[in-house]
Design a protein around this nucleic acid. Structure first.
Length: 567
RNA sequence: GUACCUGUAGCUCAGUUGGAUAGAGCGUUUGACUACGAAUCAAAAGGCCGCGGGUUCGAAUCCUGCCAGGUACACCA
């Protein structure tokens, strides 16, 4: 497909020897206003190299650049050299590429089949799935789709938090205050209550923590009673999680959680010992990182049990052996940044040259009314409540606006869930989010339902179209400002996909979809698509509508949303 | 205390990696459905881009010093 920047870069590079195509790709930019051109060369930087004024450079270049079928005209304007592409060719090539590639429009083979492990979601067993867990899940899932779309082979890992002292705490709480009946009856809610109760009591009686640690040590040593309880709690949690993943329509290639690495950690500890990285400090075994201006990385507690970092290091080595990844991506909260820097460094110190293939993808914290959510205090908003609330609201909107719609419940689910995911992915992942029911349940403006509605509207128009040979449209009849803006927007999709992949930033796709939907809606309101007499004009507009529908659908799928044809 | 992140319209956020007049949505005010779907569109109002200095043809963007908020910093994950 036509890449205007690249084309112009070649044109100029041919005329000015000292500038390479790559240099020019960096310098060239898109003018703020389409009236000023499609690509611009600011000549200020060249001024020093060429020892001429920017104005003079622009004028001279305009005179010597060769004619090109893709470039309609070139205009020097006060130090800028503005290029106007041949719109007919640009429109034709862009729209035809979309019609031809269809579901593959925007995809590429940059990854060349290389493996990428994506570690995301990773909820803690025995804790409810709250709104805070959504971020890792939605970002990770979107990255999975984006990497697949750019030619990588992804392995999605749900590194379940199914091991650690927290289970010791839960066992203590269960034995002191719980009952089999209550747990069976109330499932995860009861587990959460026990967990909260434990923390209340532990404030007053710190010796409970010793008991909890003791139970965890028992687990690590294979104690039957401890392990049976643990397995029971885990089964209850998994049942709950799978219900939520089903709602979100997200699945994983592996559920190898922390407990999976139990029997694999000894070897790694030995290895650390052999490589003389392990030192003893205050009774614990650590890797000293003072030289790298970081606190030490804790490997073993003084009672000999393992820690988070121990399991992460073990898991990374295991994954490298099993998947030979080109990248291993960890989608977790920004609060864990130091932890990742620490153990990434340990991997490097162990002499593994793939340490630089480990990537932490941090995201901001979600708070409610300015306060952080804390399972330990029972202060949480459950994700399932939010999803159900959104689905209910969607259903009532459908009942009001489109009561005859078929499969109402299914569509309401697709849009309600979509609204939540979309909202979660709409700003840069590093930004903190303040949860608000009003905002998350507002379906006007830059929202998932807006994009889905736009897609359904395009589908609706297409289903009423009475001609099918619109592939052979005449681009010169697509001549309005609104139409051209839409085509330019459509052409951006593949670029945005690559950018989202490189920057590990799904919000680039989310924002793009809003822009594209806006451009389509403006076009839609300004032009009749079907109610025009001229068949040739109609063909072009139908082609545009089809191209928009295709691109919206591809984009929505990347961020994990459905694209229903009727809403 | 140290390190990292954030600061742009009343609110939530973009800002093409240093370019031309800083853009969207929500909210507010106003206009457009007997119309290819009004979950839409159009218009108005709303800005010392946290503050000061520096770098240069040119800064929301880079450097630096402050200020404010968040987070992390040894046996939780």
């Amino acid at each position: 497909m036509l890449n205007i920047k690249n084309l112009v870069a070649h044109m100029i590079s041919d005329k000015i020897d000292i500038l390479t195509v790559d240099d020019l790709m960096d310098i060239l930019e898109y003018p703020p206003n389409p009236d000023m051109g499609d690509v611009a060369l600011p000549c200020f930087k060249l001024s020093r190299i060429l020892k001429k004024s920017p104005v003079q450079i622009a004028d001279e270049l305009a005179a010597i650049l060769p004619e090109d079928k893709y470039i309609e005209r070139i205009e020097p304007v006060s130090g800028y050299l503005n290029f106007f592409v041949n719109r007919d060719i640009f429109i034709k090539e862009t729209v035809e590429a979309i019609l031809t590639k269809s579901k593959n429009y925007g995809s590429s083979n940059i990854g060349n089949g290389k493996n990428v492990v994506i570690d995301y979601s990773a909820p803690n067993i025995a804790k409810p799935f709250h709104i805070g867990h959504l971020r890792s899940t939605s970002i990770g899932n979107a990255l999975y789709n984006i990497f697949e779309f750019t030619g990588y082979n992804c392995i999605g890992v749900n590194h379940l938090g199914d091991w650690g002292t927290q289970f010791g705490k839960l066992i203590v709480a269960y034995k002191k205050w719980g009952s089999k009946d209550r747990v069976e009856k109330y499932q995860i809610t009861e587990l959460m209550d026990l967990y909260v109760k434990y923390h209340e009591e532990a404030e007053k009686h710190p010796e409970l923590d010793d008991e909890a640690r003791a139970w965890f040590t028992k687990m690590e040593k294979g104690d039957k009673e401890a392990l049976n309880l643990w397995q029971w709690f885990k089964d209850i949690s998994l049942k709950e999680f799978s219900r939520i993943y089903e709602l979100l329509d997200i699945s994983f290639d592996s559920y190898a959680g922390e407990s999976f690495y139990n029997d694999k950690m000894d070897a790694v500890i030995d290895e650390l010992e052999e490589k003389e990285l392990l030192t003893e400090s205050e009774g614990a075994h650590i890797v000293d990182l003072e030289e790298y201006e970081m606190p030490p990385c804790l490997i073993l507690k003084k009672d000999g049990s393992t820690l988070y970092a121990t399991r992460d290091i073990t898991a990374a080595i295991f994954r490298k052996n099993k998947y030979d990844f080109d990248k291993c991506i960890y989608v977790t909260g920004a609060a864990q940044s130091l932890h990742f820097r620490q153990w990434f460094k340990v991997i490097e110190l162990m002499g593994y040259d793939w340490a630089d293939k480990l990537v932490h993808v941090p995201f901001g914290t979600i708070s409610i009314g300015g306060e952080k959510m804390a399972t330990r205090k029972g202060k949480v908003i459950l994700l399932e409540d939010v999803l159900n609330e959104a689905i209910d609201k969607t259903l009532s909107i459908i009942d009001e606006k489109n009561p005859d719609l078929e499969n109402k419940e299914s569509i309401a689910k697709q849009m309600g869930v979509g609204a939540i995911i979309f909202s979660d992915l709409s700003s840069n992942r590093i930004k903190d989010i303040s949860f608000s029911w009003d905002e998350i349940l507002n379906f006007d403006g830059e929202t998932g339902p807006y994009v889905q509605y736009t897609h359904a509207r395009a589908c609706s128009v297409l289903s009423k179209a009475d001609i099918t040979n619109y592939h052979s449209f005449d681009p010169s009849l697509i001549d309005s400002r609104k139409e051209y803006n839409l085509v330019k927007s459509l052409a951006l999709f593949p670029i945005k996909v690559v950018k989202a992949m490189e920057e590990l930033e799904p919000s680039i796709i989310t924002r793009y979809l809003v822009d594209l939907a806006q451009d389509f809606n403006r076009f839609y309101h300004n032009h009749s698509i079907l109610n025009v007499d001229d068949v040739e004009i109609k063909k072009g507009r139908i082609a545009l509508t089809f191209a928009t529908k295709t691109t919206l659908e591809n984009g929505l799928k990347l961020i994990g949303l459905k694209a229903p044809e009727r809403v």
